[in-house]
Design a protein around this nucleic acid. Sequence first.
DNA 1: GCGTTTTTTTGAATCGTTTCATTGTTACGA
DNA 2: TCGTAACAATGAAACGATTCAAAAAAACGC
Lengths: 340, 340
Amino acid sequence: MNRTASIKDVATHASVAVGTVSNVLNYPDRVSERTRERVLRAIDELGFVRNDAARQLRVGHSRTIGLIVLDVGNPFFTSVVRSAEDAAALQGSAVLLGDSGHDAGREANYIDLFQEQRVQGLLISPVGDVTDRLDLLRERGVPTVLVDRLADESKFSSVAVDDDAGGYLAARHLLDTGRRRLAFVGGPTSIRQVADRLEGARRAVKEEPDATLEVLDSEGQTVLAGRSVGDMLVQRGRAELPDGIFCANDLLALGVMQSLTMTHTFRIPEDVALIGYDDIDFAVSAVVPLSSIRQPTELLGRTAIELLSEEVESQNPVHRAVVFTPELVVRQSTAAPAAG
Amino acid sequence: MNRTASIKDVATHASVAVGTVSNVLNYPDRVSERTRERVLRAIDELGFVRNDAARQLRVGHSRTIGLIVLDVGNPFFTSVVRSAEDAAALQGSAVLLGDSGHDAGREANYIDLFQEQRVQGLLISPVGDVTDRLDLLRERGVPTVLVDRLADESKFSSVAVDDDAGGYLAARHLLDTGRRRLAFVGGPTSIRQVADRLEGARRAVKEEPDATLEVLDSEGQTVLAGRSVGDMLVQRGRAELPDGIFCANDLLALGVMQSLTMTHTFRIPEDVALIGYDDIDFAVSAVVPLSSIRQPTELLGRTAIELLSEEVESQNPVHRAVVFTPELVVRQSTAAPAAG
DNA sequence: GCGTTTTTTTGAATCGTTTCATTGTTACGA
DNA sequence: TCGTAACAATGAAACGATTCAAAAAAACGC
């Protein structure tokens, strides 16, 4: 009574062979209407639930896809996870989610776990440099797609967003609304994303001979880090204040905004325009709604799944690196100052 | 060459029996040092990775625990997930995470999927009323623990946080710092959490004969909803403004704060004190750091795993409903007004 | 009614582990 | 040297699904 019913129990109960039950489950139209109904009734009566381990053992692979992200709490990844799950569901797969929390050890554990589970493939936003480990996976025939990181196309497929283009968009927007003394606020430029966004901003500024770009280093990417940069700016005389600030991420921008608005000495956007990056939910509901650069996260997740499917299907894998273009979202924080 | 090595291959390669390889994997000290090393070397050379499906088929259950949450993007659940994962890892289990997104259909899919995977048990923060489905699970012998929802103790174990106590704490703190004209801001009271928090606040207010509590309904639980409640308050004359506001969640509180500070007519905490609920990351970095009620989310996740283990181990399950007490976090937004 | 084709059903073999009764080996005291 | 106990290693059986060649049943044409 305690043991869950097996396919054999169902077969007995419906007076058919086990093969027939399996066919009802997997190829319903190979089975005549009458017996199909009989089998379905038996399944229902016994409360049969297919044992996926047995199925998997026989067919050699699972119906799941592993997904390892750096931080589920980060809205960027949350959105990627959602869209990947949806895309996977459409093709009949489920997603096993792992949160490495930027920890290489946890990441390694998940990779091992997913291998033991014989996932169909792996989507990963890797912690630092894991090419060795990923090479191993490749040798063992686990198709892998890198997420939010460009990959050597001879080895892996990847999906990412063009941060250089995003940086350009943001700076170009500030310039287009008449600002000329720009500042970039961003954490350590050793982070690829930060460096690329800065590079894009530089490119835009070079297009206007009379424009300048100042780089303000921040301690990390948090609201508090933004606040201290903002405090520093407030100290300066009004004449030395930039008239357009581009922050490497929305949290920084919100921090800067808090500093500037708290003192009531500077107005946003009249005295200084402010734009962030990521377009997090808080951006729209900030004290002054924040302009930002939105990344097509849904597309990222969906495309990652698609690339993985391609690799799974084709024996002879040709890798692709897909790069998406981010999008400018204009809100009040960069509204053009009154003419004159 | 393409196929991954099996335990049999390892056995051949190391010139031992398959049982010995299995023992090396599962009971290393049943095997002599010499052969153990030999087997380990073979495993390494062949790149053997245990096939968990086969293992599971034999032993009858997996090493994974299913966890279905309402929204991974919600910091509350993110934290629960993390701690559950850590606790599970300690006892050698892994967590399969499902995000129902408040959608009963997705929830049902995950329940089915997890059943097919023969998870050891299920932690679930259910969408609406799923007692029927959960009853089914119970009959099929899948131990289940409800998260953030009290359960009929005759049927399930559960972990939750005492929202009534949290509401009391918040209101009591406002009263203790001298406020008497309190307001509660909260979404539809059909949400259990909101209703309980309000109830707790009422209890505290009744303790002070000269204190009053006004209930301000909000449209949902977002920053924007908080803003519109705040705007409404600003319209009122100063005399009619409450001197202490308790919001059912931090997002609401941040919205109210934005309204009040933007107009520069009221100061927080001098004119009005403000306290939220959940202690999200943004609370500490708000314009005026926000007091809040912290829920022991790490403890929730860990305890859920422990309760589940209890059910798994004992044949004769005795269910427990564990309720945690939330904690007051005092910050500047409720600092006592200057004496006099 | 009979031979032929098509459709349905059958059930043994298989996947890769773990388990455990059995056999083989070693160590040790008398 | 022998008997016995402790320890190691063995390998067949089992888990529950899918697969597929073969058998059985049904449908068809004449």
